[in-house]
């Protein structure tokens, strides 16, 4: 009998609490800004925290308030999230609300409609980066020996050869940078380590000083890095 009673009691209490909370959340529902909801729908929703906010909803709120840059979402950066956010933020409020209501307050559907209306289909998702082969990496590494400035730039790159910048490996990217053919901003993994500022700093060092650094460190990457930080 005890078992029956306990099961019944727990079942009643559990269901009761659930129904009560469901009712309360419907009764005390707070209407949120549809713009925030659409922004949230445009985000990857992985709650990685790389933007510095606790989760995607917090970031969406900040975007709606205009207190954060649209490209603050690192995982979404390469899948066109900043462009989508731009469309949502710049959309006409009345249009946005009508889309939201038309789609039955479903933020995902409303977002799709809004993007379609803005002709966002034209935004191509960036191609996936191709990782360079080991041979390619090695050939460009060998070329570094003849280019002092590129060697120093190479020391501040993340050296993970991810290929996101479009160059086959970090050494190739360093060569491009030293010839000023590319922007250091393209190094996405280095973004959080201020790589582009470091590269800029290297360009302020004169040619003889660069040679001096290389001679004193005997071309050791870690040593060059240490020298630059001083």
């Amino acid at each position: 009998m005890t078992i029956v009673y306990s099961v019944l009691l727990m079942a009643i209490l559990g269901i009761g609490a659930g129904v009560f909370l469901a009712y309360a959340s419907a009764k005390f529902a707070v209407k949120e800004d549809p713009r925030t909801k659409l922004i949230e729908a445009a985000l990857p929703g992985v709650n990685c925290g790389a933007c510095g906010y606790p989760g995607c909803p917090a970031f969406a709120k900040a975007v709606a308030a205009g207190s954060v840059s649209l490209d603050g979402c690192l995982p979404g950066k390469r899948s066109g999230v900043p462009e989508k956010l731009k469309i949502v933020v710049e959309a006409d409020p009345e249009k946005l609300i009508s889309f939201f209501e038309e789609s039955g307050e479903d933020a995902q559907k409303a977002l799709e409609k809004l993007l379609e209306a803005a002709g966002a289909k034209a935004i191509p998702a960036p191609a996936r980066p191709t990782r360079p082969s080991q041979e390619e990496i090695d050939t460009f590494k060998a070329k570094l020996k003849d280019n002092n400035r590129a060697m120093v730039i190479y020391s501040v790159l993340p050296n993970i050869n991810c290929g996101i910048c479009g160059a086959p490996g970090c050494a190739a990217f360093a060569l491009k940078l030293s010839a000023k053919e590319d922007s250091a901003d393209k190094c996405i993994p280095g973004k959080r380590q201020n790589t582009s500022q470091k590269v800029e700093k290297i360009f302020t060092i004169s040619e003889p000083d660069i040679e001096k650094i290389l001679n004193e460190t005997a071309g050791d990457i870690a040593e060059i890095k240490k020298r630059l930080e001083v």
């Binding site: 727990m10 609490a17 959340s25 707070v30």
Partner: peptide, 16 residues
């Protein structure tokens, strides 16, 4: 169970 429900309820009401 009751405390959890109560806190959730208080949160919902406060938000409104």
């Amino acid at each position: 169970l009751i405390i959890a429900t109560l806190v959730q309820f208080v949160e919902i009401v406060l938000k409104k």
